[in-house]
């Protein structure tokens, strides 16, 4: 509480409430860290004390050493670069296709009637099922991997974009119409900002699926990439390498998602439920009177 008391009194009550909220938010963040950190520590101690054999599930210290080893040899950077490059190309392609299809079907009822059933049917195919076909079509090198990632990304982006456009509040569109906005102005000034929050969510789920598919893609005969580290670790019996790659996947996934959210944040400041609200906390509503 000394943080609160240390504030200049002139800042007023709402500021103080903000501060308290921030402290509580940090508290929760630490609380969330407690479980994984505690588990890691317990495992480390258990292996050191000889209570557990750490061969198949290496303790954090071994994991750290493996990561350091990979990083120092320059291998880690090479594999991360390879994975990121595939991911970037596949994600961009998937987002482009998903968005274009979503906008077309969301805007034109005729296009929707024609395309949506087919797209929904294609979506129902487990995407891994495409792998053999993609290898036949695009070869075993980069093209087939990027295509697989793109397919994984495109569907959630398509669904999210279509859904967002279809659920734009008719009443808000009427405001635009009453100001005589043309089709393009209506899209730019009303539809685009109205759709944006849902679109960002669609991009995020696309990104998540992209990370899933990059692993699947790298299982099909990659010679570099984090997925290769996984396969290599299994074949040569190096569980620490597998765990290290998993850890890097987790970090990269979280990092890219955070970057996406941060990039969108300036455009979504108006939203009632901001990201800075603690999960489960009702959104604050100021009532100036």
């Amino acid at each position: 509480m000394s943080h609160v008391e240390g504030l200049p009194l002139t800042r007023g009550v709402p500021q103080r409430a903000d501060t308290r909220l921030r402290i509580r938010r940090q508290g929760r963040w630490l609380l969330g860290l407690l479980v994984p950190a505690g588990a890691a520590l317990a495992w480390e101690l258990a292996v050191r004390a000889g209570l557990a054999n750490g061969r198949l599930m290496p303790p954090p210290s071994v994991l750290g050493a493996t990561l350091l080893d990979l990083a120092q040899g320059g291998d880690l950077a090479l594999h991360i670069r390879a994975t990121l490059a595939r991911m970037a190309a596949g994600f961009a392609l998937g987002v482009l296709a998903g968005t274009a299809l979503g906008v077309l079907t969301g805007t034109f009822a005729g296009v929707r009637a024609a395309l949506d059933p087919t797209l929904q049917a294609l979506r129902a195919i487990p995407s891994i099922a495409w792998v053999p076909l993609f290898i036949l079509w695009f070869g075993i090198f980069e093209a087939s991997k990027i295509m697989l990632i793109a397919v994984g990304v495109a569907f959630p982006v398509y669904l999210g974009t279509l859904g967002a456009i279809r659920t734009v509040d008719r009443r808000i569109v009427e405001v635009g119409r009453s100001f005589r906005l043309g089709r393009l102005a209506l899209a730019r000034r009303i539809l685009f900002p109205a759709v944006l929050p849902h679109y960002v969510v669609a991009l995020r789920s696309g990104l998540g699926l992209g990370w899933m598919f990059v692993v699947a893609a790298e299982f099909m005969g990659a010679s570099e990439g984090l997925g290769y580290l996984l396969v290599d670790g299994q074949q040569l019996g190096k569980p620490a390498q597998i765990l290290a790659a998993i850890l890097v996947f987790a970090l990269l996934g979280k990092l890219t998602d955070t970057l996406l959210v941060a990039a969108a944040a300036p455009f979504l400041r108006w939203q009632d439920v901001a990201q800075d609200v603690v999960p489960g906390e009702p959104p604050r509503r100021r009532e100036p009177c």
């Binding site: 808000i172 405001v175 009303i190 900002p193």
Partner: peptide, 9 residues
């Protein structure tokens, strides 16, 4: 309109 219909963004 009956509701303000302000654009939230």
């Amino acid at each position: 309109f009956q509701e303000p219909r302000l654009l939230p963004w």
